[in-house]
Write a protein that binds this DNA or RNA. Structure first.
Length: 193
DNA sequence: AGGAAGATCTACT
DNA sequence: GTAGATCTTCCTA
C-alpha cells in the first residue's frame, strides 16, 4: 500500500481536493484497520475565503491551516468532528474537507461506532465518517503522509470515474467557483447534485 | 456567559 | 422530502 507523498498536498487546495477522490483513507484503530475510498471533498482557502476557518486570520485553533501540509485539521461543528487535510502551495493557507467515503475494510468495526439501518448512511457525510472511523480531536495534527500514523491516505487503484463539481454545502458565503468535488454516481456521496 | 458553527437525527406532512 | 431540535467546541463580549 503506497502513501500519497507530502508534495501531493503542496498545491492548490482545489486541485488536491479533486485528486484526492478515489484514494483511500486508512484508520488504524487498535488491532483493526478501517478504510474507505474518498468520494467527496471540498477545498477551503485562507483569508479571502469567507467560508474558511482561516478567514479571520491566524488563531490558535486554526494555525494548522497555515503550517505544514499533509496533516489533519480537525474541528467540531454542531456536535460533529469534521476531518480536513492541510493543503496549500508553499507559505499559503488552505485545507481540504473530506465529506464522504465509501467503506472498504473494517465495516464491522464501523458499524460498532455507528448504528445505522442502511449501509448508505454509514459514511455518507462529513460528521458520519468521522464517527464511523472514531476520528476526534485526538487525531488533530496527525501526519497523513506516514503509513505508521493512526490515520493516513493511501493511493487508490486507478479507476475510471467521472468527477462532478458543485458549490460547497452548508456555507453561508461561498466563493464564485465550484469548490466541492465528488465521484459521480457513487452511492456514498452526501448529495448528488 | 452567550451564540454561532463547513451537520445529523428524528418526526412528522 | 422537509422542518425543527440538538449535538459540542471555540470565539467574542
Amino acid at each position: 500500500m503506497k502513501v500519497l507523498p507530502k508534495r501531493f498536498y503542496e498545491r492548490d487546495p482545489a486541485l488536491v481536493a479533486k485528486e484526492l477522490l478515489g484514494n483511500v483513507l486508512v484508520r488504524r484503530l487498535g488491532f483493526n484497520v478501517l478504510s474507505g475510498k474518498i468520494v467527496e471533498t471540498e477545498a477551503y482557502y485562507g483569508g479571502n475565503d469567507p467560508a474558511s476557518k482561516a478567514y479571520k486570520g491566524r488563531k490558535r485553533f486554526n494555525e494548522l491551516m497555515f503550517l505544514d501540509v499533509g496533516k489533519t485539521f480537525i474541528y467540531m461543528v454542531h456536535g460533529n468532528w469534521l476531518l480536513n487535510i492541510v493543503a496549500h502551495v508553499k507559505s499559503g493557507v488552505g485545507a481540504v474537507l473530506i465529506r464522504a467515503i465509501e467503506p472498504l475494510e473494517g465495516v464491522e468495526a464501523m458499524l460498532e461506532n455507528r448504528s445505522v439501518k442502511n449501509m448508505r448512511e454509514l459514511t455518507s457525510g462529513p460528521g458520519k465518517l468521522t464517527r464511523a472511523l472514531a476520528i476526534t480531536k485526538d487525531l488533530n495534527g496527525v501526519d497523513v503522509t506516514k503509513k505508521d500514523s493512526k490515520l493516513f491516505v493511501a493511493e487508490g487503484r486507478n479507476e475510471n470515474f467521472q468527477i462532478g463539481t458543485s458549490p460547497r454545502i452548508g456555507v453561508k458565503a461561498d466563493l464564485p467557483q465550484n469548490l466541492r468535488f465528488f465521484i459521480k454516481g457513487n452511492m456514498f456521496v452526501s448529495k448528488s447534485s
